[in-house]
Amino acid sequence: MHRLAVVAVPPVTSFELSIPDIVFGQARVGDAAAYEVVCCAADPGPVDGIGGLGLTVDRGLDALAGADTVLVAGGVDLASPEPRVAAALTAAHAAGARLVAPSCAGAFLLAGCGLLSGRRVAIGPQLADRFRRRHPDVTVTDALFVDDAGVYTCAGHAAAIDLCLHLVGRDHGAAVAGAVARSLAVASPRPASATPPAEPVAVLAATSLARTREWMLTRLGEPVQLTDLARHANTSVRTLTRRFRAETGSSPLRWLLARRLDEARRLLECADLPVEAVARRAGLGTADSLRAHFHRELGRTPSSYRAGYRTAPATTTS
């Protein structure tokens, strides 16, 4: 079982501490839990929270020993990390654990430990300039989340859900990640290359493009152009693109490509189909096109992905 240790660094938000449980804690492979989640702190006992809330953590930093993933929650005051926390995170990473910051505060903590030096990082636009001034040796991107050699950062709390679902998918496949997403009643994870809105966007139900996105999902295997989407949304291409990015953080065609890749992964995991048929059904054209997308997005071939993540096949005819 994959062991995930959560380091609570005061002051911490209850949302950050709930993410591991509501995402990783619900992931299952067959009838078995996919992750063992433990929470720890430098000083076991009461941990200060935000908004008058507090919590109690029973484990100390020794819980990081043997962890496959270490998630850093808290530090919303953006202060320098406590030396014991810095040493424990550095040791865990040196031992091979991947590090995950489910908030901008977590990225500040990792950078303060020297663990982001020379790397790329995802930071929300409201804190990007502050981060650059404090850590000029780190490259700030406008991506939703970033994986740089096993260190994961994201552009805010909402993006943390996307990042954690992405990690579940990497560990156990798209079918398991999709089951978790459905249990949480959230949309398909946004791709890492999506960008967070530069400012809060209020989307009224009457103007939302949710129905158009649902329409896109029913046509993954068909050619879809921007003009088709604009016609369905009863708007211009320019307005469609602007509103789509405001709602999802991604362009319409980039969002569609991510959903097609999700479908290709699901088919490779669960259906006994040739790669050519998977590419066609997922709307990615030819097997060569599918291989190119997999190489760029996942760094592997469709065949190696199937070999690594294949569940008991449900034979499907083409």
Results as ranks from 00 to 15, higher is better:
237 V>A: 14
164 C>S: 14
254 R>H: 12
220 L>A: 10
240 L>Q: 02
263 E>D: 08
147 D>L: 07
11 P>A: 05
84 R>A: 15
174 A>Y: 03
147 D>F: 09
250 S>Q: 10
308 G>M: 03
298 L>D: 06
285 G>D: 11
98 R>N: 03
121 V>W: 02
164 C>Y: 03
186 V>E: 01
234 N>F: 06
138 V>G: 03
246 A>E: 14
148 D>Q: 05
277 A>E: 15
311 T>A: 11
309 Y>S: 12
110 L>P: 01
59 R>N: 12
224 V>A: 07
279 A>Y: 05
34 A>L: 06
125 P>T: 10
200 P>Y: 06
28 R>E: 08
306 R>Q: 13
244 F>N: 01
181 A>R: 15
234 N>E: 14
304 S>E: 15
24 F>T: 02
296 R>V: 15
46 P>K: 07
286 T>S: 15
103 S>T: 12
120 R>G: 04
46 P>N: 03
251 S>V: 06
184 L>R: 10
252 P>F: 02
125 P>Q: 09
93 H>S: 12
32 A>L: 14
144 L>C: 11
195 T>D: 03
142 D>H: 13
53 L>T: 08
108 F>P: 01
19 I>W: 00
275 V>Q: 09
138 V>E: 02
301 T>N: 02
37 V>G: 03
291 R>I: 05
132 R>A: 14
36 E>T: 15
238 R>G: 07
261 L>T: 07
90 T>K: 06
295 H>N: 07
171 D>I: 04
219 R>F: 05
212 T>G: 01
200 P>N: 09
88 A>I: 05
232 H>I: 04
249 G>T: 09
46 P>E: 13
306 R>F: 05
85 V>G: 02
284 L>M: 11
255 W>T: 13
303 S>V: 15
202 A>G: 10
95 A>F: 08
272 D>Y: 04
177 A>S: 15
60 G>Y: 03
17 L>K: 02
70 V>L: 09
4 L>E: 00
133 R>G: 03
118 G>C: 10
227 T>H: 10
288 D>S: 13
190 R>Q: 13
182 R>M: 09
291 R>W: 08
205 A>E: 14
178 G>R: 13
307 A>K: 12
188 S>W: 08
241 T>N: 12
172 H>V: 07
295 H>Q: 10
247 E>P: 08
199 E>I: 02
253 L>T: 12
